[in-house]
Design a protein around this nucleic acid. Structure first.
Length: 109
DNA sequence: AGATTGACTGCAT
DNA sequence: CATGCAGCCAATC
């Protein structure tokens, strides 16, 4: 019997996450939990970790991925949230005065 | 090899 | 809507 988890499971999982994020249309956003369900991730944390491990020159619009509050997630470095917000605004996503996104309007299913 | 952290979520108060 | 507590997996030290 093989192990219930192949050695490349994590790598495939990451690829799926990136693929899902790439599917997000421009001007829309999605949440970690949503992607976690789409890629069948064992937990939303893995999705966040995949973004954190995202290389610099990646073509994945990680900026369109926000937390379930519709707010930009806070990274350990800090300050990056402003950069992300700027990119989203450039895509046509409007923010509330609280710095949050209306998932009802921009939330991608 | 063990312990800690981390771009999270869900439910309860 | 905000806050607090618990749970899940993987990567890092």
């Amino acid at each position: 019997m093989k192990k219930t988890k192949p050695p490349d499971a994590a790598a495939s999982l990451y690829s799926r996450i990136y693929a899902a994020v790439r599917k997000i249309p421009k001007g829309k956003v999605s949440t970690y939990g949503r992607i976690a369900r789409l890629v069948r991730a064992p937990g939303p944390r893995v999705v966040g970790y995949a973004m954190a491990a995202l290389p610099d020159g990646s073509t994945v619009p990680w900026q369109r991925v926000v937390n379930h509050k519709g707010e930009i997630s806070r990274r350990k470095g800090g300050g990056g949230e402003i950069c992300q917000r700027r990119l989203l605004e450039a895509e046509g996503v409007l923010f509330t005065l609280r710095g949050r996104i209306d998932l009802e309007t921009y939330g991608w299913p």
